[in-house]
């Protein structure tokens, strides 16, 4: 057994464990994304970073314990780093959430995005997770495609199309897909515009978003004809 000090709290874990085991044993938690015990512990996602007394950040899922090891699981710096890493991950995420195969499953990215307040994932990521069918298919003017996720999609879960109360996603590719889908499903674009203006008109990023929406509407309406 080796003694590890997690946030000042001493715990004993068996030799050969990783820091994450000690953290769990001490009753703390760190976010992990790529880690699946025994299946994948390559420490690639860097979400589970913890801090050593010398200021080094190490991944808790792969860093071996040693006697007297002191680690910090939470600090301004760690939060900032994790948040930034998450932002980076989301920056390259395709965000074709409506196609996500995890129907009825879970999405750690979404959970972390909520936890860290990182915007970018649209509400429509949540429908498949709740096992819901897309409301657009029913012709409902749902703004879920364009709205920042994190609410848990209470409206679409009740069958009410999203009103976008959390504000618009600003990523261009997301907007493009959304507009494409809107047009594919023949949703009344005027309805959508009205909806967008309902909660978004006071958002500083709205103009940018709306311009993009119009741009892609033009593009895809043209294609349709």
């Amino acid at each position: 057994m080796v003694k590890v000090i997690v946030n000042g709290k001493e715990v004993e874990v068996s030799e050969g464990s990783v820091v994450l085991d000690a953290i769990k044993k001490a009753g703390y938690s760190v976010p992990t994304l790529c880690f699946f015990k025994g299946v994948y512990n390559e420490a690639a996602c860097r979400m589970c970073l913890v801090e050593l007394p010398n200021g080094k950040l190490v991944p808790s899922c792969a860093y071996p314990v040693s006697d007297g090891l002191k680690i910090t699981t939470d600090s301004e710096r760690l939060r900032k780093t994790r948040r930034m890493v998450l932002e980076l991950i989301l920056a390259v995420h395709k965000m074709k959430c409506y196609q996500c195969a995890r129907k009825g499953g879970f999405c750690l990215l979404l959970d972390f995005a909520k936890e860290f307040g990182v915007e970018g994932i649209p509400v429509c990521a949540e429908c498949p997770l709740h096992g819901e069918d897309c409301l657009l298919v029913k012709g409902e003017p749902c703004l879920g495609f364009l709205t920042i996720a994190g609410c848990g999609s209470p409206c679409t879960r009740e069958g009410t199309p999203c009103f976008g109360c959390r504000g618009p996603v600003t990523r261009e590719d997301v907007i493009e897909t959304a507009v494409k889908r809107f047009i594919e499903h023949g949703v009344d674009l005027r309805d959508l515009h009205s909806r967008m203006k309902l909660f978004w008109s006071s958002f500083p990023q709205f103009k940018h978003v709306f311009d993009l929406v119009l741009k892609y509407e033009k593009k895809y309406m043209g294609e349709k004809k």
Binding site: P154, C155, R157, E158, G159, T160
Partner: peptide, 16 residues
């Protein structure tokens, strides 16, 4: 549907 701003209903009845 939630504790404020209900979302289970719209004109014509309950959504689900």
């Amino acid at each position: 549907g939630r504790i404020v701003n209900p979302n289970t209903y719209s004109v014509g009845g309950f959504r689900k």
